[in-house]
């Protein structure tokens, strides 16, 4: 199934070749969890601070249980803030 994977700020270094504007479309197997996806691209767990699926926050404890669906947009940030 196809999903979008987005890594921002310092995490953009972990995006595979072919990504553009902090985003890449990926073909992944059914049932993959958001936590597995983050591990697959070797994003350090402590750096994956803000994890959103379709804009909704996924708490750390749920990341290895939250299964992705076709068309999902996964976005990840390190600890950041602004104002």
């Amino acid at each position: 199934m196809k999903i979008a994977f987005k890594l921002f700020a310092s995490l953009s270094d972990y995006l595979p070749a072919g990504s553009r504007d902090n985003r890449i479309e990926l073909d992944v197997e059914e049932g993959v969890t958001v936590g597995e996806l983050i591990r697959r691209y070797q994003v350090p767990e402590r750096s994956a601070h803000l994890v959103l699926v379709n804009g909704i926050f996924i708490p750390p404890a749920q990341r290895l249980r939250h299964r992705l669906k076709p068309g999902d947009e996964v976005a990840v940030w390190p600890p950041i803030a602004g104002g």
Partner: peptide, 17 residues
Amino acid sequence: QGLPKYGTQVLMNVINE
């Protein structure tokens, strides 16, 4: 780390998302 490197503007994509 976050604020010195990226400043406040790093929120643009977060708040859009």
